[in-house]
Every structure is written in C-alpha cells, then in structure tokens.
Nucleic acid binder design. Structure first.
Lengths: 316, 316
DNA sequence: CTGAAAGCGCTTACAG
DNA sequence: CTGAAAGCGCTTACAG
C-alpha cells in the first residue's frame, strides 16, 4: 500500500488530475456532482495531498517559528503552550527554539527560520537583543515583552501591577514601603518596575527604600533581610524568584506578618503565602494575544499593534 | 533579488544543473576544481537549495516530533531543551506538541506527526497512554519515562533514588522512616517509588509509614503533618511538589530539623533547605540520551534500547 | 568527470 | 465545467 497521489485519485474517479486538484483546493467551479464523487473517493482511500508538492507551487507549508529565551521560564512556557495550541488548531507547524538571552543565538535562530520559510515568528525579547530587522518574514513578527518601533508587540503591564501593589500596602497602613527588584539593566523586569515604584513613592510622598539584585532566590532572601533592617515595614517584590526568596526568609525569621506584595505569582508563592496580594501577569493571555496578532498578520493585516495585557490582582 | 535556484548557479558557473546538484550533495565524483568553483559561487551569492524541492525527491525534510505531557513541567522542559538543542545542531526541524496526559490528544498528535512525515518522535509517556504502535515512523520512536516492549525508552532510576534516600536516613539514625508519595495509579512517579520504599523497609526491617496523595503542594504539607503525627522521624518525599509542601510545613512549624530526603530537586527546594539530601533525576541527561537514541535509529540502527539514567545524589 | 532528460506530486493558465 | 500541458526546483539513472 504505497503512497497515493493525485493521479491515483484521478484514475479512480475517472477524471483529470486538474479536477482533483481543484476539488482539493475548494475551487467552486467544479460541478457539485463531480466534487462529491471525488471527495468520496478521497475519503474512502484516505488520500492526503503531499504538502511538499503543494509547497513547490507556492502554497507554503504552513509553519511559524517561536523563540523563547528559556524553556524553563514558567511565564514563557505558559505563553508558549497557548501559542502552540493556537497554531496547531490552525494546522500550522510550530518550530520552537531557545535564545538563552544570547543575541548571536537569537540571530542565528531567526536566520534559520527565514531559511525554513516560516510564515512568521513570535519571540520573547530581552534587553540586549538589539534591533530586529522588521522586514523579515514579510513583517510577520510579534515580539513579546519588548517593544520596537515598526514591530507588533505584546507586553505585560507590570508597571500597573507595581502601582496596585503599592496602593494595596498603603491602604493597609504600611509606612515604609520598600522595593525589592532586579537590576535596571534588565529593562522589562528591572527598570520599568523600579520606575513605577519610584513614581508611586513620589505620588504618595514616601521615601524610597530600594534593593536591586540578581534574579535568584538567595538574593531575594538577602534583599528582604536588608530592606527590613533598613526600616521597611512592607515590601513589593519585583519578580517571582525574589518573592520566593523573600517569603522563605520571613518564614525562617518568623516574620510572616510583614506584608509582602508581588509582581508575578506561581504555585510556590501561593504555597508559601496563600494569602499574598500579588499580580498575575497573565502570560497565558500574552501568548494567546501574540498568536492572534501573528495570525492576523499572516492573513494580510499590515497594521502594527502594541498590545498591553493587564495584570489581574489576586488575593485569596 | 529573487530567490536563486540551482539553475542560476549552474549558469553562473557555466556548468549543468546536475553538476551543481552533485556538489550540493557532496558527490565525490565531481572534479575538485569544479567543486571549488561551484562552492565559491554558492557561498558568494548565498544560494540555499530549496528543502521543499529536495523533499520531492525523497530527501525528506529533516524533522522530528516531540510530545511532552506538560510544557510547564520542569523535568520535561529540561529534557526538551536538550532534545531541541541536539536536533537543531543536526539541522533538524523540531515540532513540539503537548499531550496533557490525554490519550486521545496524544494519538491525534502522533497521527499529525505521521502526516507531517517527521522521521521520528520522542515522547513523554504516562500511565494511561495505552499501547503505541511501534511500527510508526519506521520504528523511529523513543519513549521517555515509560517502557513498552519493542520501543526504545529512556527512564530515570527513581527506585535507586529512593534506596539512596532511605539508606541516607538510616545512616543518620532515623528509626521511623516514612514515605510521602503520589498515588499508585501513577506508575512511574507513584507505584515504582512506593515499591522501592517498601522493599527498603523490608530489607531494613522498618515498619512502613505511608501517605499517598495528589501531586500538589498543599497535599505535601498535609502529608508531612500526618506522617509526623503518625510517628515518623524522617521522611522520603516522592516528588518535587510534595517535597516543597513538606518543607514549607516544617518551616512553618519550626521543625526543620526533621530529616527530609527527596526524589527530585529544583531551585525552590534548594532554597527551602539548602542542605537537603536529594536525588537529581538528571532530566537533562534523559533528554540527551533520548535524542541520541532517536538519532541513531534514524541513521539506521534498528536495535531497541532501554536506557536507564542514574540519579545523582546531592547534598551541599 | 559531466550534461540532457525524465521524474517527484502538485497547481494553474490556457484552450475547449 | 474540465483536461492536457507546462512548470515549480530539485535528483539521478543514463549516456557519453
């Protein structure tokens, strides 16, 4: 039982290959009767047109690329899962690659995708990535987390999350609200959130207390300790890892009553402090939005959109 | 600057298309001189043969599929990362799909991959998956976590991990060593580890104290509490989540001196208890082994191998 | 060592 | 409404 071709179907149906081809491509000009006959046969023998042969005639193999920075990032794999799901449903192949925050690797990956002739790409940007050539893939590019003029993007609104966190603490009578974040060199995760914090301090006439560090648990614990020593009576944690570290520090020191508020949430944080006031940055939604945006572009939309996904504040 | 074809190169080089084709395919019969000339031109103009056109002549588009159960599983995304990396280096396309522990979805995914004509697949098995048709993909199948006669597999040795955990506790004079695990319906993560525990109990003449539950943090905390109440003075945690839950419970209750030992380790666990004695199940290695196995199969090896990756016990 | 020709499985302009 | 023919960009058996 060898691979069936369009020719086999044509013979079985007693028509020409062209007609079979037209039916495959839903050409309405074929007589209804003929259509049915051919479709029945196709179904019966289980014929599938060769995607490769079609691709030779400019019916590109439907595929898109997606480049995450790290598969191990939970926010990224949430988004990734949605993106794969979306395109899978639209019968696209999805190629996944990891940039590992490495510009060169990112560019190699992009080049590869160009060569593979994917119809578009979605990728997670990072601070050092440099400018991306926006004309690649006929402009079918969607960036997540980072914005660039001329390229559609989807970002989280972490600034708003910081604001909510701040206001929540303020409303609970915290006086010395501190910020535990990552270095400003990381624009998205570091600088933007820090700036939002500073802005709140100014608005509420609060003296800033700031600790910036690397995105590791131990640093979170250390930062928490330092901030408390510096007089903080409430802390806004800028990332999930720092939140985790801070919470464990408080548990250890038996200071769980210190109000902690967080930008980003995950199961570990929920477990460490089930009642935490935190921002769910909605990465699943980010993925979905990015997928929809790219899909529209592929279908011909040429407008660029910068979508901002709003956080959902949670407290159980 | 339109797409270059083999014809363009042939004309530029003043040779026939066949000769260019031979050079592309590293046919040694082409005169060295001619080869060089053609290669130079190819490099100069940046010509890339069309994978699609090649695919029409039985030079399949090099691609493999991989089906994880959950992208959000850290063990799986560790392995996935390695697999993608490996095949990317060998210039393969990698299609990633999620089965979500759903048999039907798994089968749909496999069918899709058949249709996409990937050369082989790697997938993460789970207890309910049912028998997989081992003749698909010319037998180029590698299963992770689950074994099936006639299909190559890569598994972790979690039983050995349990043994090490047990012996470690025993060596530290624990008398009542308990086991906190997931239900036996989950063969790999539940039953096998539980059995290993029971076996150790018998070997060391220890009365088993067992708590089986779902794989959630809260259950881990609850289980830990229950086991301590039942008289346990040391606990072996069967999964990362349960370990996390147990450790937080101990932190909360100020009982961190209770020796906990764990099958599986991650950054959160490390942070909660930097000195924990735990088994790193080596999922990155699992991924690498699976990739190598599949690659060998694709290259023609037809022997089936059941690889067991040994855990590395760690304690800082 | 190399080229002309046939063929891979489709699509589509052309002619009817 | 439908078929014969040309063409997509390669590979490869054949002949030289």
């Amino acid at each position: 039982m060898k691979k069936l071709t369009i020719r086999d179907i044509a013979e079985l149906a007693g028509v020409g290959k062209s007609t079979v081809s037209r039916v495959i491509n839903n050409d309405p000009k074929v007589k209804a009767e003929t259509q049915k006959k051919i479709r029945d046969i196709i179904k019966e023998v289980g014929y599938k047109p060769s995607a490769v042969a079609r691709a030779m005639n400019n019916q590109p193999i439907k595929s898109i690329g997606i480049i995450v920075t790290r598969l191990s990032s939970s926010s990224e794999n949430q988004a990734l899962s949605e993106i794969i799901d979306f395109f899978h449903q639209h019968e696209y192949e999805v190629l996944v690659l990891e940039s590992r925050y490495d510009c060169e690797l990112l560019n190699t990956h992009i080049e590869l995708m160009v060569q593979k002739q994917v119809e578009g790409i979605i990728f997670f940007g990072f601070s050092e990535q440099g400018l991306i050539n926006k004309d690649l893939f006929n402009g079918n590019i969607v960036m997540i987390a980072v914005e660039q003029a001329g390229i559609s993007s989807v970002t989280t609104n972490s600034q708003l999350a910081v604001k909510h966190c701040f206001e929540h603490l303020k409303a609970n009578n915290a006086q010395h609200i501190a910020f535990l974040g990552v270095h400003e060199s990381d624009i998205q995760t570091g600088k933007l959130r820090l700036d939002a914090y500073k802005q709140q301090c100014q608005a509420h006439n609060v003296e800033p207390i700031i600790y910036l560090t690397d995105m590791e648990y131990l640093n979170g614990a250390m930062g928490c300790k330092t901030l408390l020593k510096a007089g903080a009576d409430a802390i806004i944690c800028g990332t999930e890892r720092l939140t985790g570290g801070a919470l464990v520090h408080l548990l250890r020191e038996d200071k769980i009553t210190v109000p902690i508020t967080a930008v980003g949430i995950n199961d570990y944080i929920r477990m460490l402090n089930p009642a935490i006031f935190a921002a769910d940055l909605q990465y699943a939604k980010v993925g979905r939005e990015a997928a929809i945006l790219l899909f529209q572009k592929i279908k011909g939309s040429n407008k660029n959109t910068d979508t901002v996904v709003e956080p959902i504040m949670i407290q159980n």
